[in-house]
Write a protein that binds this DNA or RNA. Structure first.
Lengths: 216, 216
DNA sequence: ATTACTAACTTTCGAGTAT
DNA sequence: TATACTCGAAAGTTAGTAA
C-alpha cells in the first residue's frame, strides 16, 4: 500500500518519455498532489532513496526501476481495458529440471479433487514468445497451501486453457505456483503425458488459448 | 493522495472486463495488499461509500465511476509509454462566446513577455475530433495568477504547437487556462487573426502538431 | 526564493473481540 | 467460517523555522 506509486504517477504525467526530466519544486509537487511542501519533499527523498527517481535541485527524472514500476501498473491496466477474449499466447517447449513430476505427484490428490481428474505426473513447460499478459484475472481456482510430514507445499493457482498444436488441441490447466514467478515461463498440467502423446520436443511452438470461463 | 486508487487497481488486476465481478473476502484482499483484514474491510467500505465499487458479501465489482478513475490512470500511463512524437490531433473550428478576446487582452503583457510576441486579441477554438491526449507533459511555460484592480486572473499554461491547414501552417500556442477543463476543446492564440488570415469558418478542420521542444 | 529539520497534531493501522 | 467495531499504537502530516 505504497503511496509513492501515486507520486510517481503524478511525475510521469509531466514527462514526455522514459528519459525525459522535469523541473519541479517540492511545493509545486505538493500542490499538484494536494499535500504540503514538506510532505512532497519527503516523498521525493523517499522515491530517491528507494531508487525510483533521480533528484537534484529542481530536476527530477525516472530511474529504470521507476519506469519498471510504472510499466507494471500500465500493463495491468492495459490488460484490463484492452483485453480481447479469447486470449492466445505462444510459447516454445522447454525442459524443466524434472522437479515438476515430484510436485504434481504431491499435489495430485488436491488437483484430482478440484479439477476432476488425476493429472499426469509432470509439467509441460513453455517459454513465452513475446509479451506476458497478467494472468491473475483468469485464475479459476486456488489450491491452498498444506503440509505433508515436515514439508510445506505452497499455494498453487490454476487457469483452464486450451493447448493448441499443429493439428490437435487439449483442454488442460496452466498452473501458477505462488513462489516461482518465472513470468516468462508457463507450466501446464494435463490428463496425459502431452510430450509423448504429441511427440513434442524442445523448441516446438504451441499456442495457449485462455477462454473466458466466467463467472468464477 | 488517495490510497483507495491502489486498492482499486488491485481489484482490477483480478477482473476480466469492466462488467466482471470477483469473489474475495476482506482477509484475502488484505493479504494481497499486505495489510490487515480490518484495513481491507475499511477500504472496501470506503470504496463503496465513495461510489467506486459495488460490494455485497464476497462479491465485488466496479461502478462506472470506478472504471472512469482507472481509465484516467490508464490513459495517463498510455500517453507516457506509447507517446509518438510529433503528436498530431485534429479539431473543428468553433465559435467561442467572444470572451477569449477580453482575456487575451488582459493577459497580453504577460504573453508578450513570456512568448516574445503580442498576441491577437482573440482565441481560435477547436473542438477536438477523437481522443484528447493528456497535454500536461507538453506544457512549456506557465503564466502565474495575478490581480488587476479587484479582478483575479488565474494561471494559464501554454504549449507551442504548429497549426496546420490546407496549404499553410502557423506556429502558435495552445493555452490551458486553469479553470476551464473543457477537455474536448482547444484554445489557440497566435500573432494574427487566423480566422481572417486563412478565411476559417466554423466546421473547418485543422490539425494541431505538438513537437518535442525539450528540455523545458 | 528554495529544502528539510523538529515537534505537535492527525490519521491510519491492526490486535482484540462482538456479532 | 465471515465482517466490522473499539482503542492504544504506529505512521503520516504540516506549521514553524533554520539553513
Amino acid at each position: 500500500m505504497d503511496r509513492c506509486l501515486l507520486v510517481l504517477v503524478e511525475l510521469c504525467r509531466r514527462l514526455k518519455s522514459e528519459s525525459d526530466s522535469l523541473s519541479i519544486s517540492s511545493s509545486e509537487l505538493g500542490s499538484l498532489l494536494g499535500i504540503s511542501q514538506q510532505s512532497a519533499s519527503r516523498y521525493l527523498s523517499e522515491l530517491e532513496r528507494r531508487g525510483f527517481i533521480f533528484h537534484s535541485g529542481r530536476r527530477v527524472s525516472l530511474t529504470s526501476e521507476g519506469v519498471s514500476l510504472l510499466r507494471e501498473l500500465y500493463l495491468c491496466l492495459h490488460d484490463f481495458f484492452e483485453s480481447s477474449l479469447p486470449l492466445v499466447v505462444e510459447g516454445r517447449v522447454v525442459s524443466g529440471i524434472g522437479e515438476g513430476a515430484y510436485y504434481v505427484c504431491e499435489y495430485s490428490p488436491l488437483f484430482e479433487k478440484q479439477l476432476g481428474f488425476k493429472p499426469f505426473f509432470g509439467t509441460l513447460n513453455l517459454q513465452l514468445i513475446g509479451f506476458c499478459p497478467s494472468l491473475e484475472r483468469f485464475v479459476s481456482g486456488v489450491i491452498k497451501p498444506f503440509r505433508r510430514g515436515d514439508r510445506m507445499f505452497g499455494e498453487v493457482k490454476y487457469i483452464p486453457v486450451s493447448l493448441i498444436g499443429d493439428s490437435w488441441y487439449e483442454d488442460c490447466f496452466l498452473i501458477l505456483p505462488k513462489r516461482t514467478h518465472h513470468k516468462k515461463e508457463l507450466e501446464i498440467i494435463a490428463r496425459e503425458n502431452l510430450r509423448e502423446k504429441h511427440k513434442l520436443k524442445d523448441g516446438d511452438t504451441l499456442k495457449v488459448e485462455i477462454k473466458d470461463i466466467s463467472p468464477r
